[in-house]
């Protein structure tokens, strides 16, 4: 039995790694410019720059963001014991965006007083920290206000998340009016949920944060299995419910915050991917969490590839967040109807 579980885990990880590698390879091979892979690998320009300088870093960025969002979605679904939980729907992404925006606004205000200090504050690391803090805050809010009579009610938490998202959107709209137009344009582009061209340092820092958060969630995955039974059941099985939940919160928020800092509000990845993976590997989080992480990475890389190629004749590309929402919205509603029928 234990051998079987280890074998299944190995199989799932192998499939996940293959999916990520395949998605990244495909994303590197296809794009608006015809490209000779051989020439690019021999270092002939401009093919080498396009392949190694543009497509590969962007595919890796997509993989990092997708992995973070899918892992966070899986963890939040276990905590809420509801398949509809997801960083975007729960307002965690909104909180992250709000945190990042607040730092940008502070940077603008500071820039009026002391230019260089403002520029420093508007650089990537402080904005990312703001995003993580915002994600943690939003998660805490959703789980605190989603309680009725001391018990976590998933539907209430989801509603709090949706209301919080609307609130965050309002605040961000106000901030857009307050900052200079070029900052506002940048803010808008960021919030749309687009994969762009981050510096290597930013990508590495974001990747490290997501890797840490995912590692923590994988380490907690055994306890996630017990937590998903319900608080009392988990406690009776010897789980320190409060502490475990706080640890999962923090890790899921960090993963979401890093993802939002890198790519803005890309929705529904954490909904679609864990659900499909659950159908393949079953509900055991020790298997589900790492597999979802890998397939989330592959999913977003492919979604971004589709975004880059879909509107090629028009010479433009929609942000990948628009594509995931296009797929995720109907998926959410279908899932909602299904859950209702079962209950």
């Amino acid at each position: 039995m234990r051998r079987g579980a280890a074998g299944r885990l190995a199989l799932a990880l192998l499939a996940g790694v293959a999916a990520v590698a395949g998605a990244v390879a495909l994303s590197c091979a296809l794009g608006p410019q015809p490209l000779s892979l051989g020439a690019a690998l021999r270092g002939s320009e401009p093919d080498a720059s396009i392949l190694l300088g543009l497509r590969l870093p962007r595919a890796l960025l997509g993989a990092v963001v997708g992995a973070g969002l899918a892992a966070a979605g899986t963890a939040l679904q276990a905590l809420l014991r509801n398949p509809l939980a997801e960083p975007f729907v729960l307002g965690v992404s909104g909180g992250a965006a709000l945190g990042g925006t607040a730092v940008l606004l502070a940077a603008t205000a500071l820039g009026h007083l002391a230019g260089p200090a403002g520029a420093l504050l508007s650089s990537a690391p402080p904005v990312a920290l703001g995003a993580v803090a915002g994600a943690v805050g939003a998660t805490a809010l959703v789980f605190a206000l989603g309680r009725i009579g001391g018990r976590l009610v998933p539907e209430a938490a989801l509603l709090v998340g949706i209301v919080f998202n609307a609130f965050a959107a309002g605040v961000i709209t106000v901030v857009k009016v307050l900052v200079p137009p070029e900052q506002a344009a940048r803010l808008l582009y960021w919030l749309m949920g687009a994969l762009g061209y981050e510096t290597a340092g930013t990508l590495a820092a974001g990747g490290a944060l997501v890797a840490l958060a995912v590692a923590a969630l994988v380490a907690l995955s055994g306890r996630l299995n017990l937590l998903s039974l319900g608080d009392e059941e988990a406690a009776s099985l010897g789980v320190d419910v409060g502490r475990s939940r706080a640890a999962v919160f923090l890790a899921a928020s960090a993963a979401t915050g890093a993802a939002v800092a890198l790519a803005g509000m890309v929705g529904f990845v954490g909904l679609i991917v864990p659900h499909l993976v659950r159908r393949a590997v079953g509900p055991d989080h020790r298997l589900l969490l790492p597999a979802s992480t890998l397939f989330g990475a592959a999913f977003l890389v492919l979604a971004d590839l589709a975004a880059r190629l879909a509107f090629l004749p028009l010479g433009t590309e929609p942000p990948v967040g628009a594509l995931t929402a296009l797929a995720g919205g109907p998926f959410f509603l279908w899932l909602l109807r299904r859950t209702e029928r079962r209950a």
Binding site: P32, E182, R186, G196, Y197
Partner: peptide, 27 residues
């Protein structure tokens, strides 16, 4: 599109800074 620009092998790119697109141009 950085890809389209690089494919043209430019030896000079003229950029108006107040349009945004900082990350793409930097790359």
């Amino acid at each position: 599109s950085p890809e389209a620009v690089l494919a043209l092998r430019p030896d000079l790119v003229l950029w108006l800074t107040d349009g945004g697109a900082h990350a793409a141009v930097r790359r």
